[in-house]
Design a protein around this nucleic acid. Structure first.
Length: 506
RNA sequence: GAGCCCGUAGCUCAGCAGGUAGAGCACCGGCCUUUUAAGCCGGGUGUCCUGGGUUCGAAUCCCAGCGGGCUCACCA
């Protein structure tokens, strides 16, 4: 079938050329995009349309209804469709032959004509001239079920975008979300920067990295797991408000909330602390929700998430509040290493607390919630609380049961940082692959003085999930990582058919 | 990494107590000058994911592999 289709289409290309058209055109100067036509003329009554309202538009043939000496088609462009009407006595003979005999669903054409309304009232272009712009060689997905097969949707996202209008909307919203965040940060004096993706020492998070190699320097490099340590070097250099929106790479499992490469907004603001960033986060998230959806209240998987009223509670309060059954643990028990070791497997009291939090609380945090004050053991780059040195000034934001942000007052004491790094090295020596490495170059930067600073990372993909009501991270990443397809075999097929066709003189 | 589920035409899917591979759309030929899931007449175009096995006979049953999905683990 596929081979037969290809043969037909290649044969048609030859016929298209014989009529004096180019099967793959160069340029088409249009007067309106299809969305612009709808915006300008969507409400225009028939009396305001007619031969005087001339337009040139282009798009992909989405449906086609041919009658003997006339026909209708819908062109698709910019996610919207517009009908065209082609009559034998309104176009040249070669144009009508092209329309009637050589046009396939999916071909890209341009038309010149005037706007009118059909007897059912549909806005339509009455075509007077028809240009051919690109031939499709393969069958398009079916027109009303769309493309359902998840694997094909991810592997051939272009088909997904053509066939499923909702998908296009998700990625347009994604773009709007990122633009909104940029706009808001710029308005507050933040400067966008780009720091290395390839790093000799990876840091800023606890994760396993991807390794690559630079040949000329004969140097192993890591794809970054976070930009944190570079962004803070910039704060040392006097860039008091910096941010970066870019990819991080973590060599971990894949799930509906994890892709090996994912997009993170990370920003640093000097002279504030985590309380300041809590306030900033609330403003950013509420405005981003408004810019993406028109409202700070968004529907996510049947829940109404309100980004204008973000609750704040400490990690320990959250454990107590969400503890299943009773009696709930007391504040004293959460401070008791023996009680903690009886209720968790982690090897330190702080790690046990985090473990309990993740077990009893994380997936219950549906409404946007700030969780603050984390144990020092799990936060080697965060500043300790003045009155409670076993905890650090750190918060995370949860929504829809997912972690979407992580922030803290930055540890800016190089002597304390050295001790934290060394504690991490010990964990590493005990086999914790995700413990931080010593980064002396960063330590040196700190020795020149990092001002009091707070920094935050927001997982863009997860935020987009929340604001587009997407259940899987793969639905908000255009090309999620998949195993490669074994063999497509298209090149050989095309070569054979071209040779076959060359052997047949027209 | 483990468990469960799925893989049939270009697309969406049926067929699976083992007995000649099906439907709609798409596609091919014909008719049709306001159609719109256009319509009417005629045509099935396939590595039933791959490789083994059981059987007289496998899309169907068994085993292995490949690809995907979900759950769990991992993701401080």
């Amino acid at each position: 079938m596929e081979e037969e289709i290809l043969r037909q289409r290649l044969w048609r290309i030859r016929q298209i050329e014989a009529l004096g058209f180019k099967p793959y055109g160069h340029r088409f100067d249009f007067t309106h995009t299809i969305p612009e036509i709808w915006q300008r003329y969507g409400d225009a009554p028939a009396s305001e349309l007619g031969p005087d309202v001339r337009v040139r538009i282009c798009g992909r043939v989405h449906t086609i209804r041919r009658m003997g000496k006339a026909g209708f088609a819908h062109l698709l462009q910019g996610g919207q469709k517009l009908q065209i009407y082609v009559r034998k006595d309104s176009v040249s003979e070669r144009e009508f032959t092209l329309y009637q005999k050589l046009l396939d669903l999916g071909d890209i054409i341009g038309v010149d004509g005037y706007l009118f309304r059909t007897k059912t009232g549909e806005l339509t272009v009455h075509v007077s001239q028809l240009d051919f712009l690109a031939k499709t060689l393969l069958n398009m997905p079916e027109k009303w079920h769309g493309l359902e097969d998840i694997e094909t949707r991810y592997r051939q996202r272009y088909l997904d975008l053509i066939a499923n209008p909702d998908v296009r909307e998700v990625f347009i919203k994604r773009s709007r979300i990122i633009a909104s965040l940029r706009r808001q940060l710029e308005a507050r004096g933040f400067v966008e920067v780009e720091t290395p993706m390839m790093q000799p020492i990876y840091g800023g998070a606890a994760a396993r990295p991807f390794v690559t190699h630079h040949n000329a320097l004969d140097l192993d490099l890591y794809l970054r797991i976070a930009p944190e340590l570079y962004l803070k070097r910039l704060v040392v250099g006097g860039m008091d408000r910096v941010y970066e929106i870019n990819r991080n790479f973590r060599n971990e499992g894949i799930s509906s909330q994890h892709n090996p490469e994912f997009t993170m907004l990370e920003f640093y603001q000097a002279y504030t602390d985590y309380r300041g960033l809590m306030d900033l986060s609330c403003e950013l998230l509420a405005q981003t929700a408004i810019d993406a959806t028109g409202s700070p209240v968004v529907t996510y998987q049947g829940h109404q998430l309100d980004f204008s009223r973000i609750r704040r509670l400490s990690l320990r309060e959250a454990i107590i509040e969400y503890w299943p059954g009773s009696p709930k643990p007391t504040w004293e028990q959460l401070a008791d290493p023996r009680w903690l070791s009886q209720h968790a497997t982690a090897d330190t009291p702080g790690a046990a607390l985090v473990e309990l939090f993740e077990r009893v609380t994380e997936d219950k945090l549906i409404q946007p919630t700030i969780i603050y004050d984390y144990p020092v053991e799990t936060s080697p780059l965060a500043k300790s609380k003045e009155d409670e040195p076993d905890f650090v000034e750190r918060f995370e934001i949860y929504a829809g049961g997912m972690e979407i942000a992580n922030a803290y007052t930055e540890l800016n004491d190089p002597l304390e940082q050295r001790r934290r790094f060394e504690a991490q090295l010990e964990r590493r020596a005990r086999g914790d692959e995700e413990a931080h490495q010593m980064d002396e170059d960063y330590l040196r930067a700190m020795c020149y003085g990092l001002p009091p600073t707070a920094g935050e990372g927001i997982g863009i993909d997860r935020l987009v999930m929340l604001l587009t009501n997407s259940r899987s991270i793969r639905d908000v990443i255009l090309f999620p990582l998949l195993r490669p397809e074994p063999e497509i075999g298209l090149a050989a097929k095309l070569r054979a058919l071209e040779e076959e066709l060359a052997a047949t003189r027209p």
